[in-house]
Design a protein around this nucleic acid. Structure first.
Length: 534
RNA sequence: GCACCGGUAGCUCAGUGGAUUAGAGCACUUGUCUUCGGAACAAGGGGUCGUAGGUUCGAAUCCUACCCGGUGUACCA
């Protein structure tokens, strides 16, 4: 509908002014109409005319049609437009398709918790945002590929393995005493202990450094056995928890150990051209590009995460030949990724413009920042427990749908990049701007629809004010979603759905559907509402 | 030091050039309802949009400076 109205206004503007002016239609308060434009103000300024007179000329020039019911001048020269009921209804039952990513192959990492550590709330936030971004891309027509990437080598593995080897002594069977449900917590504790030892104990530090090297080579049989068991545990946990978050499955799992070699080779190949040698280390001189210098390969020849991310980009490109590749990370890594992406584009010109880094804010507790090093993390299991008990305390039964609805909405309703302040009490509250409120508003509508079935086609009729308000809100779906897709901003959808649910609840409160003389029309409206919300 | 992100109601956040009252939710106050699932609806109090200048017919929104908070700044991830 918006495009149709836009077309009408644009042709009128061109006829009046003889020039191409970009017309913008906004959604004013319902009392002012369905659309508004300030084009007469812009034109008036440009041509030195009175904006209100320009507005009147534009209105007079709009061709007769069955879409616009009225056009009025307001304030200094705004034009408020009200569409006909017929046009409104038609726009609701024939929403447009989204094409922002049509014919594009897109790959996204939709989860990336590391094995040998606990999966915490930050990982959950990241995974949910990445998965939802992938949903938007898919809705925009992309050929979507979801993958994951995990750090199975490096210092954090050395730290965990230090504690794990102490725990098992020389008998890996001791690990059997840890129950599956305790493993996430256990691994978290092992990592925290190793991490503390690393900073407080010189001898431990040396051992951990040696174990870090082992994470790449795995030549000691005992190390390899414990490593394999715990890595398997970790991925079982990760897969289970990611599924529980409501993420769609990934089709390929990448590991840092896979990406390391190809990355290191690429760096070495471009020594002198892209990377510089500094005391034996291979450094990307990011400062030249306004970022910061960063070591990709150590003076001992070991690949660091920069080299591995470079290798990963190549692996993904071999597998998918994607037009775009999305990586969602915490904002701390924003500048780091600017550097890696720049380095990748210099080494591999075919990657130009492919890799996109979306940075998230931080999940914070009202009590302070979480730190995985000191062990003060809220692991994901704890979070599920909190939400489940909150749902039970309402006398309801926790289900995958209501748990995911509550959790995902909480993380997605803020603008991408904003921090999420995780207040335990508020996060599990089920009123107000929350997932459960929206789900409830859907359930109510569905309940009505079981009591009377919606007509095949929308009846021709004039609408009451309340009916019109609800339909007007439903009609915003296309333009809101289109924007959410092109800007990859899920919160726009959340905000809209909340407003839509509010509008429905207002309607519900004041208008009967079943056994009302307007039952047929109202069932049609409720049906469109439920479909849109879902 | 430099770079990036942020500062909007008591709290958590939308709004990033447009108006006639700057919006929600939570919390607080007061109502509605013997309900098509009350996890509802309605009304009210509460804001010099960090500060000071500037641009503009028009600024929370753009520019400049400053203040406050967060993050990053080479062999950790």
């Amino acid at each position: 509908m918006k495009n149709k109205i836009l077309g009408l206004i644009e042709s009128a503007v061109q006829a009046v002014s003889g020039e191409e002016v970009a017309v913008e239609l906004t959604r004013p308060d319902a009392q002012f109409g369905d659309f508004a434009t300030n084009v007469a103000l812009q034109l008036g300024k440009k041509q030195g005319k009175n904006p209100r007179e320009v507005a009147q000329e534009i209105i007079d020039t709009i061709p007769k049609n069955d879409s616009i019911a009225s056009a009025e001048i307001a304030g200094p020269g705004f034009i408020n437009l009200t569409v006909t009921d017929k046009s409104l209804v038609s726009s609701v039952i024939h929403p447009g398709k989204f094409t922002a990513f049509k014919d594009q192959t897109v790959v996204a990492e939709t989860n990336n918790p590391n094995p040998f550590k606990a999966m915490h709330i930050g990982h959950a936030f990241n995974a949910i945002l990445a998965d939802t971004t992938a949903n938007l891309l898919e809705a925009g027509g992309a050929d979507m590929h979801r993958v994951s990437y995990h750090g199975d080598v490096g210092l954090h593995v050395g730290k965990s393995m230090y504690s794990l080897l102490k725990f098992v002594g020389d008998d890996p069977k001791k690990l059997d005493s840890i129950k599956p449900s305790e493993r996430n917590k256990f691994m978290s504790q092992m990592y925290a202990d190793g991490s503390n030892a690393y900073t407080s104990d010189e001898t431990a530090k040396k051992e951990i450094d040696a174990l870090t090297v082992q994470s790449f080579t795995r030549e000691d049989p005992l190390f390899a056995e414990v490593y394999d068991i715990c890595k398997k545990w970790s991925f079982e946990q990760i897969d289970e928890l990611v599924d529980k978050l409501g993420n769609k499955p990934t089709q390929k799992r990448y590991l840092e150990s896979d990406a390391d070699e190809i990355g290191v080779q690429t760096v070495k190949k471009h020594e002198g051209s892209v990377f510089i040698n500094s005391d034996g280390a291979l450094v990307f001189p990011g400062k030249k590009y306004g970022i910061f210098d960063n070591v990709f390969v150590t003076s001992t020849g070991r690949g660091l995460y920069g080299a591995r991310d470079l290798g990963l980009m190549q692996l993904k490109q071999q597998d998918f030949k994607a037009d775009k590749s999305y990586i969602v990370t915490a904002e701390e890594q924003k500048d780091y990724f600017r550097g890696v992406i720049k380095a990748a584009e210099l080494c591999l010109p075919e990657l130009n413009g492919v890799t996109q880094n979306i940075s998230t804010g931080t999940v914070k507790l009202s009590t302070g920042k979480m730190s995985s090093r000191s062990g003060e993390v809220l692991d994901v299991q704890w979070l599920f427990d909190q939400i489940e008990s909150a749902i039970r305390s309402r006398g309801a039964k926790p289900t995958a749908e209501n748990i995911q609805g509550a959790l995902r909405y909480q993380f997605l309703k803020v603008r991408v990049g904003s921090d999420v302040i995780f207040d335990v009490e508020q996060s599990v509250a089920l009123e107000g701007n929350t997932g459960p409120y929206v789900q409830y508003a859907h359930a109510r509508a569905c309940s009505i629809l079981t009591k009377g079935s919606a007509p095949q086609s929308f009846p021709e009729t004039d609408l009451t004010d309340d009916e019109r308000l609800l339909l007007r809100k439903i009609s915003e779906y296309s333009e809101v979603t289109e924007r959410a897709i092109s800007e990859l901003m899920p919160h726009l959808v959340c905000t809209y759905l909340y407003e839509l649910a509010q509008e429905f609840n207002r309607f519900y409160e004041h208008n009967r559907v079943i056994d009302d003389k307007r039952q047929v029309v109202r069932l049609a409206i409720v049906n469109e509402y439920a479909t849109t919300l879902k």
